[in-house]
Design a protein around this nucleic acid. Structure first.
Lengths: 378, 378
DNA sequence: AGAAAAAACGTAACCACTTACATAATTGCT
DNA sequence: AGCAATTATGTAAGTGGTTACGTTTTTTCT
């Protein structure tokens, strides 16, 4: 292990945590490898899990081994080849499924396992001792870490942080004549990519004042540094409704939460105008957009979309009173829930809107709320 | 991370602990790698520690980097080559030492580091969050584990256990005529290897009864299964002394504690015969044997060895009253120490003898004793 | 001063896997 | 039944290093 002198990986702490963990693991593995190597058995440490699995399972296919050992199938094929050379196993085609290759230990293979078995026991005990000495329930900790990564990978964790940092520099601004061109170019970018620019698109995008602002509407733009990277329009539709339309985010800035910022701004605007519901027309093809709409509370409506656009196959609707009415429906506990909700909504740092579905019993409501409160308190 | 289905590595628990740890670490590393890769920078994750070190150290040699990053020097050379191709660094021979190659970041290299710096910060925070969620002081645990392995590698831990298991099947038996031949063959094996068989060796080894047993001595043999794997002789020398001689262990059974078992048996025999000291002649060349003699309490004596053997360059002596006299010297605390010592000696599972040096203040006496007691109690 | 030992770097080959891509057999769908 | 999709295996090349061994300088030790 480490000798004298400084150790950069150690010094870097959380930043190089994974590297340090890997180094530790490889050290341990190499040491156990040495123990195996010094036994006079034709056996390599890398085969161990495979030998173990085959000893306890009689016969297995490549894919079965691959999923059980969490190795890729080429790894299994390579190990099987090597072990076959040492006559530790046999590979036979399955009669019922000519694709499959059934792998079985030979008598020599079984003998080999039995020869190393007592050593395995001592390795296990040595590891147990070592883990106990190290002072924490390491196996439990690893398990927890695996679960945490299953829930949200480190990649997503880092990316969400980076996006959050990015969004700090994004400003949502109201319509100004200097921004008019971006309303058109940003929308045309994605229209051309996924569908085509229909005549009605051309009319709306070229005349924002006439088609949006004059209908009691508003257009918002997202600006990052000196770039305009996104836009959305809202306009009045009927007595109490507003319609969201022409939402677009420049391709290289997608998946960073800019769409959500724009959408929330638009919803906020409608709320200020005393709207009771919002609607929008979209297509099932736009999966990511759809997910965003659902996340902020929109629901796919039974009504058909207006026939103005060819691409729009579904209509979505957000009832602005839905949270309140949900509370009224719950009856007695209403008041308490109301205050909790208010607390969560006001303090939720990231977004000012939390989708209704998160409040459905068993989901976010039970687990997530506690988490959130803990986070805010700590 | 892991999908559905069983996971053998997880199932194996302590036995495949290192493999599981490695898998976790590699997963984390791969994820962070993805983050780097998605930035539009000419940079590979594997270079990170090197880039970091060079950014903060101006200029470093290959070996300096190798020790700081805990990587082999070929790794550094390879990385340096790759980074030079991307014009991230320059390599210049040192004028003062023509062997040395000084590695320095170029302006592009420094810029690259500065570009990834904000991302590093988020990675660090994401890791910190993740470790906090996982619930234990993981970094501290890793540190402890590294220290434990520094003190005693996993290889040694496992091997000591295996030797202990082995010794359970080793029987130490007294001289019997049927064993006479082994006294000779076992000793000749090592004599031929390290020195040569001198005439006096030939005489003693061929006439054990006359040369040892009839001198108030005894010969012990170590048997494992149906093999005779070691031997030692003790014989009376002068009024109160005994001499250890002709100790040998078959080569493939060395370093497993058989020599110690034989030696302890011989010391026990001398003790029973009311001996007050033991002596033996040996050579500095036999390092392992020397260490064993010192471990059981022998000390290199000022006296010269008897001139009977050419190979013997030093004489060692074990005073059988030394522990007791040490206690008497300490005065008042003597009684308490006596009982503690007795407790340790009786309960010390592995060996019935503990070298005196371990009881010297500041060493084993303070730290080790507490440890031992904890081990025995738990 | 001269020789042996040690230090610093260089090179090739290997290791334990993975990624990427290909092919054949089987299953599912209409 | 016929064809696309899926499943199971095969293969080549890459990855992030390491081990093993060699060469050239420098240092250390007489």
């Amino acid at each position: 292990m480490s000798k004298t002198g400084t150790d950069l990986v150690k010094h870097l702490g959380e930043l190089a945590f994974a590297t340090r963990l890997k180094r530790l693991a490889e050290n341990l593995q190499a040491d156990v490898g040495r123990v195996y190597r010094e036994m006079e058995v034709e056996f390599e440490p890398k085969w161990f899990t495979m030998l173990y699995a085959l000893y306890h399972n009689q016969t297995m296919s490549v894919v079965e081994l691959s999923t059980l050992l969490r190795l890729t199938h080429p790894a299994i094929i390579q190990f099987a080849e090597q072990m076959q050379e040492r006559k530790l196993l046999t590979q036979i085609r399955d009669k019922n499924d000519a694709r499959k290759k059934m792998i079985t230990l030979t008598e020599k293979g079984r003998k080999t396992f039995e020869k190393i078995e007592p050593v395995l026991h001592e390795i296990e005990l040595a590891n147990r001792d070592f883990l106990r000495e190290s002072g924490t329930d390491m196996l439990g900790t690893i398990e927890r870490m695996e679960r945490l990564l299953d829930e949200k990978s480190m990649y997503r964790r880092v990316n969400e942080r980076l996006n959050e940092v990015f969004r700090r520099d994004v400003r949502i601004v109201n319509y100004q004549p200097r921004l008019k061109q971006y309303f058109k170019t940003l929308n045309e970018e994605w229209l051309k990519k996924y569908f085509s620019v229909e005549p009605i698109d051309e009319r709306v995008l070229s005349n924002p004042t006439k088609e949006v602002l004059n209908h009691g509407g508003e257009i918002f733009f997202a600006e990052y540094k000196d770039e305009v990277i996104g836009t959305v329009a809202v306009r009045k539709e009927g007595e109490h409704g507003y319609e969201i339309m022409k939402m677009a985010v420049a391709e290289q800035y997608q998946s960073k939460g800019v769409g959500r910022m724009l959408l929330e701004k638009a919803i906020g605007f409608a709320r200020e105008q005393k709207a009771t519901f919002l609607e929008l027309d979209t297509s099932r093809k736009l999966e990511k957009a759809l997910k965003l709409y659902e996340d902020v509370g929109f629901k796919i409506s039974d009504e058909l979309p207006s026939q103005n656009y060819e691409r729009c196959t579904i209509k979505m609707r957000l009832d602005l009173n839905s949270i309140l009415s949900a509370i009224l429906v719950t009856g007695g506990a209403g008041i308490m829930m109301w205050w909790t909700l208010k607390f969560v909504l006001i303090n939720s740092a990231t977004y000012s809107t939390i989708p209704l579905k998160h409040f459905i019993p068993g989901g976010f409501w039970i687990n997530g709320l506690l988490d959130l409160v803990m986070k805010l308190v700590s």
